[in-house]
Design a protein around this nucleic acid. Structure first.
Length: 593
RNA sequence: CGGGACGUAGCGCAGCCUGGUAGCGCACUUGCUUGGGGUGCAAGGGGUCGCGAGUUCAAAUCUCGCCGUCCCGACCA
């Protein structure tokens, strides 16, 4: 039996000054974790018990669809060279040399090692599909570890990889993971949402993230309360209310108007007596791209102008822009660059009089990207590329020709859900899981090949699927805490019940506590008996702090065969007959587990 | 990497400006006390003041360098 008096559960009355977010403060105060360095944490008894339970759930569910491996965290440079990620990962990868001077690194993830096994061992389509997973420590030299366990440099991840003969097979493996992940997070008692994720620069492949709303989160998630629409800010869309276009003025051709000193959207709109919705916002950016003229793969780069047109009241999302230009890095133009292209100072920029690229493939010429919200709009007002002048009667596709239309707009809270029209909300959230159709990236770069039905050599198609073990714990704490502590779902709590002996000097109370704890344990519950010689107040405070969802207070009423059960989440208490205590918890169990 | 803050007992902090014996609360030890929300009293133990140089008769305190941690930003399949 687990007796508090014999355990090391170092609870703290005050949180360390370093701790900022609730989960960090509470996990330290509750004696779950201690910090060793920036983004490096030790797990003590309670913390380890909880993460072990999480891993058990993950294992049980993953074993239904895959096979568990255990791969090395220490990796030779070669396989990372093969995939091209030795360079790509940059300073985020921990690197070291062995005594012979050979380069090694600590694994940030295990596509390379898994694919290495696959390329050495898989020969035939008959061996596919395969789903291999492991639970392993990952190392990432984060530029800024923070928020306690949310962004760390060493953490445990369940990572899984699927190998299929074709895209249809990958769809099946992907769906299996989706279903498994839902079961895992349901069993862990988390309130989560699944969002469409930005699938990276390459695009195309499907990717979804499992997110938990919390103020401590670092990602922004757009979601609908009514239906299940949810998406990353980088992917989110919304339905816009229709806007009434202005009437054409004069002959309908672009018409210059004098707007002295009116630089901002608001100023111009007010000055001309129109809504910002009828204005064009012109954003001038630069991208760095490979210099194709210098010959392919010379590594030479050049700068290219990308001009964006947005509706006057809209904001641009940089990730969407990056996707629109094929994943290249973007930056705002500098003043000289603006003058060189527009021959006008900022504040009066517009699309007229510039020789735009006709399509994205056309090299050298500046790119004009127009946000989809402006597609089909007419008679807009934009800058004239002339100081103190704007232009009326601007119509995309008419008075000027965009290189392309693209979704560039950042969704804002309260806009309409694209599926059902209900208002959208935007929250910060933590990513606890990610499923991703990798495609052929690793099997091709690392040369994994199998023979298909026709005896033809083909690369298996891969998926990769991750779950952050500690993040499940952290998210659960964030989701269920108050200033006195937190309460975990019984399935991942270090103990399900804490039995508090309120007076260890009272023989009747002491023996009743022991009996109850023993009984519950015999019935299969994880029980912690607080048998310390402490005042009841101390024990209650600790019990509230350490994340155990149920508490049994054994007090004076033992003489009436009665104890008090307290539910930590609601602090609701009820008197229960000692003789009925096991039955009481057994009845609770289906809901509690 | 840019900006900012901090580093004094296990935790939270004061002392530093104005250089001279290192302090408070909690925790810990012992005794008594108390026993349903961090009980009270008493007596104790515990510190290379982050590290290194410099100034000075004398440095936690002033100067310089380094290290560490946190926050904002950049970054982050």
């Amino acid at each position: 039996m687990h007796r508090w008096s014999e355990l090391f559960i170092p609870t703290l009355r005050e949180a360390p000054a370093d701790a900022e977010v609730a989960s960090h403060k509470l996990l330290v105060r509750a004696g779950y974790i201690r910090q060793l360095g920036a983004g490096i944490y030790s797990f003590l008894f309670l913390g380890n018990r909880s993460t072990q339970k999480i891993m058990r759930i993950v294992r049980e569910e993953m074993d239904k669809i895959g096979q568990e491996f255990y791969l090395p965290a220490l990796n030779p440079r070669e396989i990372w060279e093969a995939s091209g990620r030795w360079t790509v990962m940059g300073d985020n990868m921990f690197r070291l040399k062995d005594r012979k001077g050979a380069d090694l690194c600590l694994g940030m993830t295990h596509e390379e090692v898994m694919t290495d096994i696959a390329r050495k061992e898989l020969r035939s389509y008959k061996q596919l599909p395969q789903i291999w997973y492991q639970i392993q420590t990952k190392f990432r030299d984060e530029p800024r570890p923070k928020s306690g366990l949310l962004r760390v440099r060493q953490f445990i991840m369940k990572d899984a990889y699927s190998f299929d003969i074709d895209a249809a097979g990958l769809d099946v493996s992907y769906q299996k993971h989706y279903d498994t992940y839902c079961r895992i997070f349901d069993r862990c008692g988390l309130k989560y949402m699944v969002i469409d994720a930005h699938s990276g620069a390459m695009g195309g492949s499907q990717s979804q993230e499992f997110m938990v709303r919390t103020p401590a989160g670092e990602d922004l998630v757009v979601s609908c309360e009514k239906c299940n629409y949810a998406a990353n800010m980088e992917k989110a869309i919304s339905k816009l209310a229709p806007v009434e276009d202005l009437k054409a003025e004069g002959d309908g051709q672009p018409l210059e108007v004098h707007t002295p000193g009116q630089k901002t959207i608001e100023d111009v709109a007010r000055f001309l007596g129109v809504s910002p919705k009828n204005k064009i916002k012109t954003l001038a950016m630069m991208i760095t791209e490979e210099d194709a003229d210098a010959g392919a793969k010379t590594g030479k780069t050049r700068q290219r102008a990308v001009v964006l047109l947005m509706r006057g009241d809209h904001q641009m999302n940089e990730a969407k822009l990056s996707t629109a230009v094929g994943g290249k890095e973007t930056r705002p133009m500098q003043e000289e660059e603006i003058l060189a292209l527009f021959h006008s100072p900022a504040g009066y920029l517009g699309p007229l009089g510039i020789d735009w690229a006709k399509n994205m493939e056309e090299p050298r010429k500046p790119i004009l990207l127009v946000d989809k919200a402006l597609e089909g709009r007419t008679n807009l007002i934009g800058g004239a590329n002339k100081e103190n002048y704007h232009v009326k009667n601007l119509t995309p596709g008419g008075s000027f020709h965009p290189t392309a239309y693209a979704d560039l707009r950042a969704v804002t809270a309260g806009e309409d859900c694209p599926n059902c029209g209900a208002p959208l909300r935007i929250d910060t959230a933590v990513e606890i899981g990610h499923i991703f159709k990798l495609g052929y990236k690793y099997s091709e770069s690392m040369n994994a090949r199998v023979l298909d039905r026709n005896g033809k050599e083909v690369a298996p198609i891969m998926g990769s699927y991750g779950i952050g073990i500690e993040r499940i714990l952290t998210a659960a704490v964030e989701q269920s805490s108050d200033e006195n502590g937190f309460w975990l779902p019984p399935s991942i709590a270090p103990f399900e019940v804490v039995v508090v002996s309120t007076n260890s000097k009272d023989e009747g109370i002491r023996t009743a506590s022991e009996d109850i704890a023993r009984q519950l344990e015999a019935a299969g519950f994880d029980v912690l008996l607080d048998d310390r010689d402490e005042r009841p107040g101390v024990k209650f405070k600790d019990a509230d702090l350490v994340g155990i969802p149920f508490r049994v207070n054994v007090g004076k009423k033992v003489t009436e065969d009665t104890v008090e059960v307290v539910r930590r989440s609601t602090l609701a208490r009820e008197d229960i007959k000692i003789s009925a205590i096991t039955e009481y918890f057994q009845q609770l169990r289906p809901a509690a587990r």
